[in-house]
Amino acid sequence: MKYALITGASRGIGKAIALKIAQELQYNILLNFQSNAEAAESTKKLIEAEGVKCELLKFDVADAEKTSKALENFTKNNPEAEIEIIVNNAGINRDGLFMWMKPEDWHSVINTSLNGFYNVTQPLIKDMLKRRYGRIINIVSLSGLKGNAGQVNYSAAKGAVVAATKALAQEIGKRKVTVNAVAPGFITSDMTADFDDNELKKLIPLNRFGEAEEVADLVSFLASKKASYITGEVININGGLYS
């Protein structure tokens, strides 16, 4: 039984990705969330309406021990399950100028995006390599490529995942496991709810924010067999703001 694991998938971009992979690729979904059980349950119902199974996995990707235990328990209880797709989407931001940045604001952002990538991917990669098939897709950010004032911690975390994507792709390509990153710009979501749309839109050639579904379309393509010859890539999805 084939599964796709999407982290931070109860809402926003993660939710859109989980739904799209269920709809288009007909994978069963492992939906990771940290705290919002109500949103996770609601997303699960939408996914199961697509005729696939959806299991909820509650853990904080930044917590190595809890992540490891949750993944171990799932594989032990579902010996027939094959996790073929991993989408590392979980991320948090704690914005502020670097000179005033508190240690916890630095570490929490790094721990979720960068250590979360390690904590989730490393234990699952061995089975992908044995089966000689897999798709690893890391959701990074425009901030990790061009940098963004007030987001030194977020830019550092996402930039590190970009570099890790390129290196890991070179390590495991021979086993037909691809590793790519998707770098969204301004996407309509909780994370951008407080942004000044009108001012920012002037900077974007397409003159609008992107939609979570548009990011999901790209991720679903990269997760499919159609993307077999793409690996080590970072694909921007930002309306022309930066390339």
Results as ranks from 00 to 15, higher is better:
Met1Pro: 08
Met1Val: 10
Lys2Cys: 10
Ala4Asn: 08
Leu5Met: 04
Ile6Trp: 06
Ile6Leu: 11
Gly8Phe: 08
Lys15Gln: 12
Ala16Tyr: 02
Ala16Arg: 02
Ile17Ala: 04
Ile17His: 03
Ala18Cys: 08
Lys20Trp: 03
Lys20Met: 02
Gln23Ile: 04
Glu24Ser: 13
Leu25Ser: 02
Glu41Tyr: 13
Thr43Lys: 09
Lys44Ser: 07
Ala49Leu: 06
Ala49Cys: 07
Ala49Gln: 12
Leu56Tyr: 03
Lys58Pro: 03
Lys58His: 09
Lys58Glu: 04
Lys58Asn: 05
Phe59Glu: 08
Val61Lys: 11
Ala62Met: 13
Thr67Tyr: 07
Ala70Leu: 12
Glu72Phe: 10
Asn73Phe: 01
Thr75Asp: 00
Asn77Cys: 07
Asn77Gly: 11
Glu84Thr: 15
Glu84Arg: 09
Ile85Glu: 06
Ile85Gln: 07
Ile85Val: 15
Asn89Pro: 05
Ala90Thr: 02
Gly91Leu: 09
Ile92Ser: 01
Ile92Asp: 01
Arg94Glu: 05
Asp95Gly: 08
Asp95Leu: 10
Asp95Pro: 08
Leu97Ile: 11
Met99Arg: 14
Met101Phe: 10
Lys102Pro: 00
Pro103Gly: 07
Asp105Gly: 06
Trp106Glu: 10
Val109His: 03
Ile110Gly: 05
Thr112Val: 14
Thr112Lys: 09
Leu114Glu: 06
Leu114His: 00
Pro123His: 11
Pro123Ile: 13
Leu129Arg: 06
Leu129Gly: 00
Lys130Ala: 00
Gly134Asp: 00
Arg135Cys: 11
Ile139Gln: 01
Val140Gln: 06
Val140Cys: 11
Ser141Phe: 04
Ser143Asp: 07
Leu145Arg: 10
Gly147Lys: 04
Asn148Ser: 14
Asn148Met: 03
Ser155Pro: 06
Lys158Tyr: 10
Lys158Thr: 05
Gly159Ala: 15
Ala160Leu: 14
Val162Lys: 11
Ala163Gln: 13
Leu168Val: 15
Leu168Pro: 06
Gln170Met: 12
Gln170Asn: 14
Glu171Ala: 14
Glu171Met: 14
Gly173Phe: 12
Arg175Asn: 10
Val179Pro: 04
Ala181Asn: 00
Ala183Tyr: 02
Phe186Lys: 00
Thr188Asp: 12
Ser189Asp: 03
Ser189Val: 12
Asp190Arg: 15
Asp190Gln: 12
Ala193Phe: 08
Asp194Thr: 14
Phe195Pro: 01
Asp196Gln: 05
Asn198Lys: 12
Glu199His: 02
Leu206Gly: 03
Gly210Tyr: 04
Glu211Cys: 05
Glu213Gln: 14
Glu213Trp: 05
Val215Ile: 12
Ala216Pro: 02
Phe221Asp: 04
Phe221Met: 08
Ser224Lys: 11
Ala227Gly: 08
Glu233Ala: 15
Glu233Gly: 13
Val234Thr: 15
Val234Trp: 09
Ile235Trp: 09
Asn238Leu: 13
Gly240Glu: 05
